[in-house]
């Protein structure tokens, strides 16, 4: 199945809700409206035969150059066009990606790869969970919640995957400072004559990275 046929099948099912598409070969991607992600994934798994969910992840576009969230307009960056333009123009702060693969079980060869994307605004829930289609999506959705604070709209009681439940915030958001610490047990006071850890200069001192 060529890229054109795949995109045609997707467009036939979703119509104008396929917002953008591109890429060649195994780098094919399509961006769809948030409300129809599950439908698109079902189509990929069912009719189109993409049987493996390779990965599910997100990116925070808060500081994407030229994006209207960043508050900075860099004309050099903004004129690069293509994918870059798409990220700055379409609405929604988080870009969620589902990476799919069509694997032939007998030969072990990859017959196609595709990435489905959608955008989610800050503070709103993502598209419905797909853990009934691919059980590994359970952990991947938990990781996206953990790191970005975006959870499927039908999984309100999602647990974190990597961090502890007491952790506040979502560290892969671009506004989470790299030098921020959240120890569960308060550090002991420094012995006399020693420098307390909080008095040390942070190693990374770039503006925006330190609170």
């Amino acid at each position: 199945m060529t890229e054109t046929e795949l995109l045609d099948a997707l467009k036939a099912a979703l119509g104008a809700d396929v917002l953008a598409a591109g890429g060649v070969g195994h780098d094919l991607w399509a961006q769809v409206a948030k409300g129809r992600v599950r439908e698109a994934l079902q189509l990929f798994k069912g009719t189109l035969g993409f049987n493996v969910l390779v990965d599910h992840t997100a990116a925070d576009l808060l500081k994407w150059p030229g994006g209207h969230w960043a508050g900075v307009w860099d004309p050099c960056q903004a004129t690069q066009g293509g994918e870059h333009e798409r990220r700055t123009q379409t609405d929604g702060r988080f870009e969620l990606t589902w990476r799919l693969m069509r694997l032939d079980e007998k030969s072990g060869l990859v017959e196609g790869r595709a990435a489905l994307k959608c955008r989610v605004s800050d503070g709103e829930a993502g598209p419905p969970s797909v853990r009934d289609l691919w059980p590994c999506a359970d952990w991947l959705e938990r990781e996206v919640w953990d790191m970005f604070g975006v959870k499927p709209n039908n999984r309100p009681d999602l647990k974190r995957l990597l961090l502890y439940e007491e952790f506040k915030g979502h560290p892969l958001r671009k506004d989470y400072p790299i030098a921020k610490r959240q120890p569960l047990v308060a550090p002991l006071p420094a012995p006399e004559g020693r420098i307390a850890p909080e008095q040390l200069r942070p190693r990374v001192t770039d503006p925006g990275l330190v609170e």
């Binding site: 990965d55 500081k63 870059h84």
Partner: peptide, 20 residues
């Protein structure tokens, strides 16, 4: 399958690095 999914915004640092 060890995958690296990388976003670049054209600067000297990665915008996002995802390791599968």
């Amino acid at each position: 399958e060890l995958g690296f999914h990388i976003y670049s915004d054209g600067s000297d640092r990665a915008y996002r690095v995802r390791c599968r």
